[in-house]
Design a protein around this nucleic acid. Structure first.
Lengths: 154, 154
DNA sequence: CCCATTTGCTTGACCAAGCAACAACCGGCT
DNA sequence: AGCCGGTTGTTGCTTGGTCAAGCAAATGGG
């Protein structure tokens, strides 16, 4: 990545420029908009929804902090703090991990599952309306591959 | 956005699901990666680079806080603080706006311009490598349109 | 078996950024 | 002239990120 101070590479062409700007916009606007929708609609911030959702899909509705953090795109400390918030609301509880007593499992409670059940349609609608809707004619699978390749630490 | 508690809409199909997950990943990883590249390479965080860049393209290298914030995809308060950081480094100065005494102009200094000159190739390289490269076969203009439509507050 | 190292998670400090409440100021209306 | 709604920035609080330190459990070499 490093190099001599001042090369003079070719600047972006207009299409590249437009795409980069538009992506910047989306990255800024989209999470906030969806979070706003969720809060307005179900009083459940996107981060907490995401945690509940990933837990609900895990076997036995439980997961180690490390794995959950990575699925939620959160740092481990951010995950800890999120789980603490959810725990105080009774939506999640923590249990020591049996096969490795250093570890903890975040476990979805029944209340947490109910909260999720009542919230996912709202999340789904937001995702459709704020994002997917705008990619109607596109080859989504191909797009997904490109994004995945841009998102995996190259 | 609001509705009765528990509708049962169709879930996302696998391609939609994959795209949403991949975008989540990118939104999380990309800014941090590029920011990391810029810091490693030029000790200039992405946010500060973006501010300098937008200022440099403005007439007289000056801009009102409001407009600069919007171009940088930053809240006004975030912009205030960024400009304060840049000001303490001597890269920007603030001047009262003459035609409106509430307003301020952020003005790029010569030092700021020099900093930008020395940094933009690094930014450009990061954007190419971390993002554009992964969209080789795509119709970038069409993509840009879709992203713009998803990014404008619907 | 014991001690050093590593691993999994928590915690605290510090920073960046968003939102909401605020202050200063403009401009139009009466 | 004086007020009032809207605009422009700034500040206080919360969330989240990184980094470093701490602690408890696990692992491995002597």
């Amino acid at each position: 990545m490093a190099g001599p101070p001042a090369e003079r590479p070719l600047p972006l062409n207009p299409d590249e420029e437009a795409l980069v700007r538009a992506l910047g916009q989306v990255m800024h606007v989209l999470p906030r908009t969806i979070d706003g929708d969720m809060i307005a609609d179900r009083q459940l911030p996107l981060t907490e929804y995401t945690a509940l959702m990933n837990l609900s899909e895990a076997p036995d509705r439980r997961m180690r902090m490390h794995e959950l953090a990575s699925l939620c795109h959160l740092s481990l400390s951010g995950m800890t703090r999120t789980i603490i918030r959810l725990e105080t609301q009774g939506l999640v509880k923590r249990e020591r991990c049996e096969e490795d007593a250093r570890g903890w499992n975040a476990v979805l409670t029944d209340a947490g599952f109910a909260r999720l059940e009542e919230s996912w349609p709202s999340h789904l609608a937001a995702v459709r309306r704020r994002f997917l809707q705008h990619f109607d004619g596109f080859d989504l699978a191909q797009l997904a591959r490109a994004f995945r390749s841009a998102g995996t630490t190259d």
